Amino acid sequence: MTLSTSDRSLVEPVFRRLNALRILSAEARASLEYAMLEGLERAGSGEDLISEGDPVDSVRVVLSGWLCRYKTLEDGRRQIVNFVFPGESCDAHAYLLSVMDHSIATLTPVIYTEIKRTRFESLVAADRTLAEAFWCETLVNNAVQREWAINLGRRVALERVAHLFCEIFERLRPVGMVDGTSCLMPITQMDLADATGLSVVHLNRTVQELRASGLIVLRERTLTINDLDALKDAALFSPSYLQLYRRS
């Protein structure tokens, strides 16, 4: 397979993300690149890539677009339990379980790749750096879930929303999706409300409070953080759980 510049650009967020956790060998990068480009898929906004209860036989890695992990109660209420951004996998090791315990849906149009279980297991077995990078990603996802539990259980509304904005900004930074103090925010207030456990009215009021304080600007699907340190202070946010800095 001959790789074009556009092909390499498409998969670059994945390597930026994994290299932030472990430096991949040249061999690992080459083999993963081919595997990803062979399994390219597209989905529109509002589609479930996988539903709770479905069996899992492949690893999905997001190349562009935003997704969410969510669970729904019997009466239809939805709780978003995490977002999935470009460069991240939809649970690299979920195939070790019998079925999915949550659903993953697109929030925007997405491009992703699907690597079958046997192919993925061969890739990580052949290269320790690749295996460690994906395991690190799984551990970071677990840390994110713990932080979100604290968000819902202990932080007040303003802290919750500010913390989520800080986390989104910091998670997009390693994959090159931050432009100065701004990043895309292509999701609805309902999505943000479902992620923070707030009503849409309460969410809107909280966003307005952050705007009025001069900490953020949220306009035209773009989030601008005027003072990241001040926003982190307001959110009681420390990025250490995201493991953004490799050990030497």
Rank of each mutant, 00 (worst) to 15 (best):
P174E: 01
V207G: 09
C166S: 10
P186C: 07
L210F: 01
M190D: 13
T206C: 06
R205G: 07
L152I: 11
E159M: 12
L152F: 11
N204A: 13
T196E: 02
H202M: 14
M185Q: 07
R173S: 08
L218N: 01
H163P: 00
L192A: 12
V201T: 15
G153V: 00
A162L: 01
I216L: 10
D179S: 11
M177G: 02
M190N: 11
I168D: 03
L203T: 15
V200K: 15
T188Y: 01
D194A: 15
R205T: 13
G180M: 09
A157I: 02
S213T: 11
R171E: 10
L152H: 15
I168Q: 09
V200M: 15
L172A: 05
L158Y: 02
L203N: 15
E209Y: 00
A157M: 01
A149Q: 12
R160V: 08
V201A: 15
A212Y: 06
R154G: 00
Q208V: 01
L192R: 08
A195I: 08
G214F: 08
R155H: 05
R155I: 05
R160P: 08
Q189R: 13
R173Q: 10
A149I: 10
L184V: 14
L184F: 06
V178W: 02
T196Y: 01
T196D: 05
T196G: 04
P186Y: 00
P186D: 05
L198Y: 01
V217T: 14
A195L: 14
V200P: 05
L192T: 09
H163E: 07
T188P: 00
L198P: 02
M177D: 09
G197C: 03
D179R: 11
S199F: 06
L164V: 12
L192E: 08
T188C: 04
T206S: 07
R155F: 11
T206D: 05
N151Y: 05
R146V: 14
L164T: 13
I187Q: 03
R146W: 09
V201K: 14
R154D: 07
M190H: 12
M185I: 11
R211N: 09
L192D: 04
E167A: 07
I187K: 02
G176N: 07
R171H: 03
A162Q: 02
G180W: 05
C183I: 09
M185H: 13
N204V: 04
T196L: 04
L152N: 06
T181P: 08
E167V: 03
L198G: 04
I168H: 11
V178D: 04
